[in-house]
Amino acid sequence: MGTRVAYPIQIKEMAIKMKQDKIPVKTIMEELGIKNKTQIETWWRWYRHGENHRLVQPVGKQYSYGKGPEELSTETQLKNENNFLKIHIDGVKKIQRVGKDVEPEIFVELVKLMKGKLTITALCQLFEVSRATYYRWTHRKDLGKLTALEEAVRRLCFLHKFRYGYRKIAALINQEYKVNKNTIQKIMQKYHWNCRVKIKKRNKVGQPYKIVENKLNRQFASEAPLKKLVTDITYLPFGQKQLYLSSVMDLYNGEIIAYTIGDKQDTAFVLDTLDQLPKTTDCLLHSDQGSVYTSFDYQNQIKHKGITMSMSRKGTPSDNACIESFHASLKSETFYLDKLTNEPTSIVIETVKEYITYYNEVRIQQKLGYQSPIEYRKSAA
């Protein structure tokens, strides 16, 4: 768990005021430096319920209705404010990408902005810059001076709130200057003015142990039980912590024959689901190319069970449409229908279990002749 932030009462009141003015939560978070949107929702709920006394309570403290905390000591107030300022400094370090490679212009400007709030010594310690280095930067004659082209690039980047990459900025610049786009790219990289919307994706380190071909090939009909199985993982973001559901469906009747609910999406999680499968021969199990399915441990267990593996093509969820459809139905017919968005973990787990039982035993399907999966299997037998 990360550090819990004690926001000053002024920040909380400003957030509530902006909420009253119908300002989007995302904008409030950006302008006030609030890390989590649920924090704003909590303050707003307290305000609507007339529990304004809770806005001044220390982090982690709760009081009965109508009873607020005693006046905080000066030491506690300073501690909370220092923690709050540190979080903001950390945010600035991430946004400006400073730390090991601090930009002199940015740091000198930051010291000016934080004057009266943090000392030069404190800022130098936070950014791991020596005081001597800071004072040397302040005496540089070229510090802060931009060429006409650099100033034009800076102006456009800030004007468009860093939504444009170097190609679009170059296109705008070329309305006034004739300059190569690679030059614009170098300037933007030098001053860290790169686009902050679509961050370049990098390939994950390491390679999957084994990827197999799509043997199922969207042939979702099965003539007998336990011949064609499909599996997948879905998110359950409806509780106080993130949960995951791993399930296996028999394509013969659409029955969920194995499932696991957990808070970690690792190999052990899907192996638990795999171990629930009954013993069978000549069985095909289809999944996507997720790292848990391509791992050595999972593939080794598949081989040990005598199961033939099949995998969707990369980036093609429709190759596993049946299990994707089940997960969508589970969410839409429970959490979305009943508007369950922030429930205790036990309620989320119980809701999923009850729905799977309902889905298998009660919920009729047109393709099964308006029978439930288990009714269909029994009648066919």
Rank of each mutant, 00 (worst) to 15 (best):
I307V: 07
I307C: 03
T308W: 03
M309Y: 00
M309P: 05
S310N: 09
M311I: 00
M311D: 01
S312T: 12
S312A: 07
S312V: 03
S312R: 09
R313W: 00
R313G: 03
K314D: 04
G315S: 10
G315C: 04
T316G: 00
P317M: 04
P317L: 02
P317N: 06
P317E: 02
S318M: 14
D319Y: 04
D319I: 08
D319F: 00
D319L: 01
D319A: 01
D319E: 03
N320C: 02
N320W: 03
C322Y: 04
C322I: 14
C322K: 08
I323R: 11
I323Q: 14
E324S: 05
E324V: 05
E324R: 02
S325M: 03
S325W: 04
F326H: 14
F326W: 14
F326S: 13
H327V: 08
H327N: 15
H327C: 04
H327E: 08
A328Q: 14
A328H: 14
A328I: 06
A328R: 15
A328Y: 08
A328M: 09
S329V: 12
L330D: 10
L330H: 06
K331T: 11
S332G: 06
S332W: 06
S332Y: 10
E333I: 12
E333F: 11
E333T: 13
E333Y: 10
T334K: 01
T334L: 02
F335R: 13
F335T: 08
Y336D: 13
Y336Q: 11
Y336V: 05
L337P: 00
L337H: 10
L337D: 08
L337C: 00
D338L: 12
L340I: 09
T341P: 02
T341H: 11
T341R: 11
N342R: 12
E343G: 09
E343P: 12
E343Q: 15
P344W: 09
T345D: 05
T345Y: 01
T345P: 01
T345F: 00
T345L: 00
T345I: 03
S346T: 13
S346R: 08
S346C: 05
S346L: 06
I347T: 14
I347P: 00
I347S: 13
V348R: 12
V348E: 07
V348G: 09
V348I: 13
V348K: 10
V348T: 11
I349H: 11
I349C: 10
T351G: 01
T351L: 01
T351M: 01
